[in-house]
Amino acid sequence: MIYGSNISVSFGGVHALKNCKFTIEEDITSIIGPNGAGKTTLFNTITGHVTPDTGTIMSKDEDITHTPPYRIVRQGIARTFQEPHVFDNLSLRENILVSRHNTISFDKRMKEEVSDILHRVGLAKPVDMQAGELSHGQKRLLEVARALALDNDILLLDEPTAGVHPDLVDTFKDIITSLPDDGVSVCLIEHDMDFVMDISEEILVLKTGSVLATGTPEEIRKDEAVLEAYLGP
């Protein structure tokens, strides 16, 4: 579970998050909201890429508010980015192995694990292929594969289906819905409402840096404030 209270983040005169309070505790939680609502800033703050001006973020009863990103990962929180961040000049195998940098052994078993992880996300490409040669959607899959290779129990996905081929959307849906069975909780930012409503157990709606509403997909669909601010009639 990740819990945040009174989180405020500002960039110059822009208040990206204002006294934001949230709890991420379900197996699949989605964060939605209009552009500029502070969704990615919230992810960046949770994962240590942005330091909040005020507030506290707790994960597994530990205060992670001022923890640098590389230590947040060791707290069990993995993430992907709005734009895919892969190591373009490294092979797919090397991309995955960066996640395993704390593991001493790089034997045959590790090579098999790399193939398994790539297979799990449906990335059927040669492991020695350079990541820079992948398409946009495939890079997103590689990012997810890399995050899964961390063996963490919380995965934050920032717009996983944005800009990907429609055929890949179902692949992402299958991956995300299968993760809770492996003990991985997922929190995602997404603009595809059908996708969100279909897979989420809980939805957080952000508006101008604050949580506007929280609830199940059914509750969010009927919430007057959400309809007015984001979903529309």
């Binding site: 590389y70 892969v86 704390n102």
Partner: peptide, 24 residues
Amino acid sequence: SHYGRLVEAIRDDKTAAKSLGVST
């Protein structure tokens, strides 16, 4: 070595390396 892989990963994308637990 694996260390060399981390060096090149940081070159390609420092933010991503940090997000995978690498102390850049």
